[in-house]
Design a protein around this nucleic acid. Structure first.
Ligand SMILES: [Mn+2]
Ligand SMILES: [Mn+2]
Ligand SMILES: [Zn+2]
Ligand SMILES: [Zn+2]
Lengths: 143, 143
DNA sequence: CACGCTTTTAGACAAAGTCTAGTCGTTTAC
DNA sequence: GTAAACGACTAGACTTTGTCTAAAAGCGTG
């Protein structure tokens, strides 16, 4: 699990290795999707992934897009960001960080991990364990 | 705007006054919806509001439920909590606070405002102004 | 009462996401 | 080599949440 997370371009062989390291069998469609996601740190909706993948020659079905994004999220290859009630964003940056969300433009931006850190969690509810902390700073366009 | 926010039971007259104080004309349907929401601090989906309202005698249409919840949110009578990709929760507690979200049970719980506070915001993106901060601590049921 | 304005409504519609049942491809078993 | 078994992929139906439209109802004012 201590593999180097991708920050820039990866070859198809590196993508396959990355999927295998996260216990995901690399198939043609999964590599196609991963190539788009891991091109750079970004936030894409399922719909965006679908239309980018299908600009290329290969056709990948809607069902496979959703199956794959859910699988990637479950395996820790991407992170779901829930910030817009109408769609989920998939974040190819899985390092610990938080987000600005521009409610006017729909733009989602990373907050540098050092710039914002909770020093300590409050006591969790009885019988529960921590699963993650999401901090979303909503902003409006000024002017 | 410095009115006392409701924390427990309100008469219909008090509900109407509360709506008027937030620049919302109190109608029969809006008071019916407000009576449910402001019964106590709670987190309800539109669907839950619809079915609770329609247990009573009056029938309120789906369109009116959505129109009213959106209006209440816009006027600051309730707060939208976006934590589950499939539905919005409407929070009748509009004071400054954050949430635990149990991803197993779907339960949403308040975090006492003193128990968790960001000391300072990071520098906002160019040309934007703050609109709100949401902190969500996701937890899983242990056992 | 007649007018204009706001609110409510039924039901059509849209978008995101899931599910089903069949197909395709790749191993494994013989 | 062939067949069974298994995993992955797919088209398209379906579900759910929410919005929209166009008409009706309510309401205040003259
Ligand atoms: Mn999902
Ligand atoms: Mn909404
Ligand atoms: Zn991010
Ligand atoms: Zn709350």
């Amino acid at each position: 699990m201590m593999d180097k997370e991708p920050t820039s371009w990866m070859s198809d062989a590196e993508i396959s290795a990355h999927l295998r390291a996260h216990d995901v069998t690399p198939t043609q469609q999964r590599v196609d999707i991963a190539r788009i996601l891991f091109a750079r740190p970004q936030h894409l909706s399922a719909d965006q992934v679908l239309s980018i993948v299908n600009q290329e020659t290969q056709l990948v079905s809607k069902a496979t897009i959703y199956n794959t994004l859910n699988l990637f999220a479950r395996k820790g290859l991407v992170r779901e960001v829930i910030v817009d009630p109408s769609k989920v964003f998939y974040d190819s940056n899985v390092s610990d960080h938080h987000h600005f969300y521009n409610v006017d433009s729909g733009e989602l931006m990373d907050i540098d991990s050092q710039a914002l850190k909770l020093d300590q969690l409050p006591t969790l509810p009885e019988g529960t364990e921590a699963d993650g902390v999401d901090i979303i700073i909503r902003v409006r366009s000024r002017g």
